[in-house]
Design a protein around this nucleic acid. Structure first.
Length: 657
DNA sequence: CGCTTTTGACCCGCGC
DNA sequence: GCGCGGGTCAAAAGCG
């Protein structure tokens, strides 16, 4: 009772602040629906029709003009047809690639089956690090090794399982509601999956976990919490973001209120506790602490799910963290049949550097290197951890220039079921390298027992064109391919002139989304239907959308408003049909609202304390040179109703304090 | 005046 | 059971 009253008091305060800020902000994001503009300027058809109509009644008008008109129209039509042809070719390539990958996968699976035991032994002999990595927290004692061997077998199985998931598209959508719940468990209170179970106010309310008295009442409420509790009865997943930041907190776009500060053991820097004040009863909290080893690194740990619409400027981080959390959770769930062991395909992790493209990524497993190098990411399940039963934590490492890395401002993705600060040795880390100069995906093996694993692709990517270049999702790394923009793959970016090849997300996602369709029929499907399926896939899966959004926003960071706007127009024009179909949960106008969110945050004069720009804007120079990839997907699908659009620079004012 | 931050106290879980 | 440490509370202080 005490707690409740106290909280409501805080919430009341937060609400006031929120509303004040919102009123400030409302104007900024209304430029989102660029789609409408596009529609207005779009159709060549109108020209055609107009010309024909004009020609009819005005038969007496100079025929020359008519001819010119017709010629013009023909030219335009020709362009459209060309574009169409290009698209068809692209789709054909995608399909071919898919088939190739499928064949590779089948071969791999067969080989795996045959060689699994031998492989196991080899792996164990080759790399103790890997073993310790796989288990993360197991110390390097003989006993641990024995158990590690067992675990590795399980991992093998998981690996196969994962591959099967990936390529056979065995999506668990029908499994006891698991998929939707895995998904942005964090911020996607999908109306279908949870709302009836939970009074809204209580949704997601698991804080404070320590208050057992309240916990009993609270815990039963949120569906997401149910999911979590299934996998992790006591603790919610956490997403830890490491970023270089010289400001006190990370500017993630949300409004936070500090409610406590503590000196934690092993770190001279105090840990600050914040709770989200954007909405009443928002259960999200974060902890902010400087890294003891490197004071310039700010470690921000998010926990919980926003139960309210977020300012656009906050969606990037929210999406990222929620997707990461869902990735973590879904990873955990994957291992439900093998308690204590979680496997996440490294491609998955790699591609989800910016969060939860997990499903699409799960289908990117045809990468032969996966099988060669055991690119699976193993997490120990917290419930099995005798130590501290800490929160499952996934760490998104946005610190640029790790000492050992030549580049990579981007992602190191660390998944960790222990509190890093508390149990550093148990932390496992997936290190992403940026596209700038190094495409290697490496499992960094740091001092803390991070495991190091290099899965560097063998071929150079043409990443300059790819907004997601740092999130390489190439299903076939051995094949040279141009790493095309995810969105251009679905032809949202017709502006780009050079041919592009990358089908990564698209194809993988297609695989996933058509999981219910027999593969053969997929293969036989026409390109047009493939496009439709892709569209459907994107529209149908909020997690993918949010993942896209998060990925893009995280990577793009800031971009000039005008540039993005115009780009958005181009996209719109080129992808009208796609855009039309995409609007189920996310309007393209919102999707491509790029400029209003992070850029707003970074450009707003009010951004004072946060350092969002320091990491979210870390778009490599490549990003600034990109011509067609500048849109940010912003809409936080997770939140009920697409009405958000209330974020503005003003929202950034005190977002971090 | 209202909201946020500070900070010591308190609660709770865990390990010994 | 006790101590430790993380996390939270809540009164007081600070701030705009």
């Amino acid at each position: 009772m005490e707690l409740v009253s106290e909280r409501s008091r805080h919430e009341a305060g937060g609400k006031g602040a929120k509303e004040g800020k919102r009123s400030e902000s409302s104007g900024d994001d209304e430029n989102l629906p660029e789609q409408e503009n596009i529609v207005a300027q779009e159709p060549p058809m109108t020209n055609i029709e107009r010309s024909s109509v004009d020609a009819g009644p005005n038969a007496s008008s100079p025929k020359k003009e008519e001819v010119d008109e017709l010629e013009k129209t023909k030219v335009e039509m020709g362009g459209v047809m060309e574009e169409n042809e290009r698209l068809k070719m692209r789709l054909n390539r995608i399909l071919n690639e898919y088939r190739t990958l499928q064949m590779q996968f089948n071969n791999i699976v067969e080989q795996e089956t045959k060689n699994s035991s031998d492989k196991l032994n080899n792996i164990i002999e080759e790399s103790d690090e890997l073993v310790s990595l796989s288990l993360g927290r197991l110390p390097s004692n003989p006993i641990a090794k024995v158990s590690n061997k067992q675990t590795l077998k399980e991992e093998e199985e998981h690996e196969k399982e994962g591959l099967a998931l990936g390529l056979d598209c065995k999506f668990e959508t029908s499994k006891s509601g698991s998929t939707t719940e895995h998904l942005p468990a964090t911020n996607n209170p999908s109306p279908t999956n949870s709302s009836e179970l939970v009074p809204k106010e209580e949704a997601g309310e698991t804080w404070p976990p320590s208050k057992t008295t309240n916990k009993a009442a609270i815990r039963s409420v949120a569906a997401e919490d149910e999911v979590i509790s299934q996998q992790n009865p006591a603790k919610k997943a956490r997403v830890c973001v490491r970023a270089r930041c010289d400001t006190p907190t990370l500017n993630d776009g949300c409004q936070w209120r500090k409610y406590g500060q503590k000196i934690s053991k092993g770190n001279p820097c105090p840990r600050a506790y914040y709770r989200c004040t954007v909405a009443t009863s928002c259960p999200v909290r974060k902890q902010v602490q400087r890294c003891a080893q490197d004071m310039s690194i700010l470690i921000t740990t998010y926990e919980g799910t926003h139960n309210h619409p977020l300012p656009l400027s906050a969606t990037a981080m929210a999406s990222t963290t929620s997707a990461a959390a869902s990735m973590l959770l879904s990873g955990s769930s994957t291992s439900s049949s093998h308690p204590g062991l979680t496997t996440i395909p490294s491609t998955y992790t790699t591609t989800t550097a910016s969060a939860g493209l997990q499903y699409g990524m799960n289908f990117s497993l045809s990468d032969a290197s996966i099988n060669k190098s055991k690119q699976f990411y193993h997490l120990s399940h917290p419930s099995l951890s005798s130590s501290a039963n800490s929160h499952p934590t996934i760490t998104l490492d946005l610190t640029s220039n790790p000492p050992s890395s030549s580049s990579s401002p981007f992602a190191r993705f660390t998944s960790d079921y222990n509190n890093p600060s508390r149990y550093p040795s148990s932390t496992t880390s997936l290190n992403f390298s940026s596209s700038e100069s190094n495409n290697a995906v490496s499992w960094s093996n740091g001092m803390n027992g991070f495991l190091s694993y290099s899965a560097a692709p063998q071929q150079p990517y043409n990443n300059r064109n790819n907004i997601l270049s740092t999130i390489n999702i190439n299903p076939v790394r051995q094949q040279p391919m141009e790493n095309n923009n995810i969105l251009s793959t679905i032809n949202i970016n017709p502006v780009r002139q050079q041919p592009m090849e990358n089908n990564n997300i698209y194809s993988s996602y297609m695989q996933r989304n058509n999981s219910n369709i027999p593969i053969q029929s997929q293969q036989q499907s026409l390109p047009d239907s493939t496009i439709a399926a892709a569209t459907k896939a994107i529209t149908a899966d909020p997690s993918f959308q949010s993942a896209l959004a998060a990925a893009l926003t995280s990577i793009i960071g800031t971009k000039s408003t005008t540039a993005t706007t115009t780009q958005g127009n181009h996209h719109q024009q080129g992808s009208t049909s796609v855009g039309e179909n995409l609007g189920q949960k996310m309007k393209w106008g919102e999707l491509f609202s790029s400029s209003s969110a992070l850029p707003a945050a970074s450009t707003a004069s009010k951004v004072s304390s946060g350092c969002a720009s320091s990491f979210l804007n870390k778009a490599p120079s490549a990003a600034t040179t990109q011509t067609g990839s500048l849109m940010c997907l912003q809409q936080p699908l997770p939140f009920p109703g697409p009405k958000s659009a209330s974020a503005s620079p003003g929202d950034n004012r005190d977002t971090t304090n």
